Simulated scan of single mutants.
Amino acid sequence: MIRILQSVSNMDRGGIETMLMNYYWHLDRDQFQFDFLVNKEKPGFFDDEVRSLGGRIFMGPGLSPLKYPEYLRYMKTLLDREKEIKVLHAHNEAMEFYALNGAKKAGFPVRIAHAHNTHLPHGLKLPVKLVCKAMIPGAATDYFACGREAGIYYFGEKRWNESGVLIHNAIDLERFCYRSEVRTRLRREYQLEDKLVIGSVARFMVQKNHTRMLEQFA
């Protein structure tokens, strides 16, 4: 069995985490198994389900710049101890450099950087994140992205064109199939029987561009 270590913030119901669970639910777990390296102490929504499927959850030191040396030591200790882990797959945006470089310094052979965004949000940590993003290509061995633009933003156009891999976000379509009884029940519950209803499914983050949507509706 090959164990794949997924580096995330924590296993809450975010977009990246749900995408990973969609893959995990359908994985041949006799051949492959996911483990999760989390970086927040807060318990995640999917923690119990991960464990029930045979996955393990490892708590990292956190992604503070002050903890970077500790993170490198942690990655070496973890990967030296858990010999069944053969692949690191990192999803922490710019800060995935921590796990990737820690694995590189530990001599770990397969280190996947995964780009999920086309820009970094502005904030106090932006300078640190820009430095980390610039160093990701040198720390990774493989380059995944949810789209070409994200891949170019994180890895550069030349590297993306040469070795980038497009990974479509997995969605179980059966869960979202149209069902007239569900439509009727929900419209009745929210008193919307005679209304035109347009849904938007997204958390309130700048990347989801709710402002643009509201401008369009206005």
Rank of each mutant, 00 (worst) to 15 (best):
residue 145 A to D: 07
residue 14 G to I: 06
residue 167 I to C: 12
residue 164 G to M: 05
residue 92 N to C: 13
residue 48 D to F: 05
residue 80 D to E: 00
residue 181 E to M: 07
residue 126 L to Q: 11
residue 68 Y to T: 07
residue 31 Q to F: 13
residue 121 P to A: 08
residue 177 C to K: 15
residue 175 R to Q: 13
residue 142 D to C: 02
residue 46 F to S: 01
residue 178 Y to A: 01
residue 112 I to V: 12
residue 17 E to I: 05
residue 57 I to L: 06
residue 206 V to S: 15
residue 193 E to G: 10
residue 148 R to N: 10
residue 13 R to Y: 15
residue 186 L to K: 15
residue 46 F to C: 04
residue 115 A to E: 05
residue 88 L to P: 00
residue 60 G to D: 06
residue 213 M to R: 01
residue 15 G to T: 04
residue 141 T to L: 08
residue 189 E to L: 11
residue 108 F to V: 00
residue 39 N to V: 02
residue 141 T to D: 02
residue 136 I to G: 03
residue 57 I to M: 08
residue 122 H to N: 14
residue 158 K to R: 13
residue 112 I to A: 04
residue 187 R to G: 04
residue 210 H to K: 00
residue 11 M to E: 11
residue 30 D to V: 07
residue 143 Y to R: 08
residue 45 F to R: 00
residue 25 W to D: 15
residue 97 F to L: 04
residue 132 C to R: 02
residue 99 A to R: 01
residue 115 A to I: 08
residue 123 G to T: 03
residue 40 K to G: 07
residue 156 G to E: 04
residue 81 R to I: 05
residue 173 L to H: 15
residue 81 R to Y: 13
residue 12 D to T: 12
residue 82 E to Y: 00
residue 38 V to Y: 03
residue 85 I to R: 02
residue 181 E to N: 12
residue 76 K to M: 00
residue 137 P to G: 07
residue 189 E to I: 09
residue 73 R to Q: 08
residue 117 N to W: 09
residue 213 M to N: 09
residue 208 K to G: 04
residue 64 S to N: 09
residue 194 D to P: 02
residue 11 M to Q: 13
residue 211 T to E: 15
residue 172 D to T: 12
residue 97 F to V: 03
residue 42 K to W: 07
residue 112 I to G: 02
residue 168 H to R: 15
residue 30 D to P: 06
residue 126 L to H: 11
residue 63 L to G: 05
residue 128 V to Q: 10
residue 207 Q to F: 12
residue 151 G to E: 01
residue 162 E to S: 12
residue 27 L to G: 04
residue 132 C to V: 11
residue 63 L to E: 08
residue 82 E to G: 03
